[in-house]
């Protein structure tokens, strides 16, 4: 079975064999080296794309602080996402790992903001009610 790929450098379309997947190939048009994947050709070597070298933060510190100091169980959600970051990265799912990392940060921030916001609102209301 062959399928269509596009050179990531010169964008020329060509046919690739399925057994070439994962291998390096030289583009016959621009002579640059590309890697053939099942989704098409890419410019970076596979090792870098799946690299465990890329640092995707898990924000576990923020998650713990949110859970333990902000009086809100939202930090737990953040911890669950934090746990997915590394396993997804190990599995080569870089996009998923980045997404989990972002979600971990977002949930921790929601927890902190809600906790601070409710504290401020509560304080303001009590002061206003005491005044009248």
């Amino acid at each position: 079975m062959s399928f269509k790929i596009e050179c990531p450098f010169c964008h020329q379309e060509m046919l690739a064999e399925e057994k070439w997947i994962g291998q390096e190939a030289e583009c016959p048009f621009c002579s640059k080296t590309m890697i053939i994947t099942k989704d098409g050709a890419v410019s970076q070597p596979l090792v870098n794309r799946n690299s465990s070298g890329e640092k995707i933060p898990s924000y576990l510190f923020l998650a713990i602080i949110t859970t333990i100091l902000c009086c809100l169980p939202l930090g737990i959600v953040s911890i669950v996402y934090a746990a997915q970051v590394n396993s997804k990265q190990m599995a080569g799912d870089i996009e998923g790992a980045r997404k989990a990392s972002q979600l971990a940060l977002i949930w921790a921030c929601i927890g902190i903001a809600l906790s601070m916001g409710s504290g401020l609102l509560w304080g303001c209301f009590s002061v206003i009610f005491d005044y009248f």
Partner: peptide, 10 residues
């Protein structure tokens, strides 16, 4: 104090 975050969950 009135100025502490109230635990919404609680």
């Amino acid at each position: 104090t009135q100025w502490m975050p109230v635990c919404v969950f609680h």
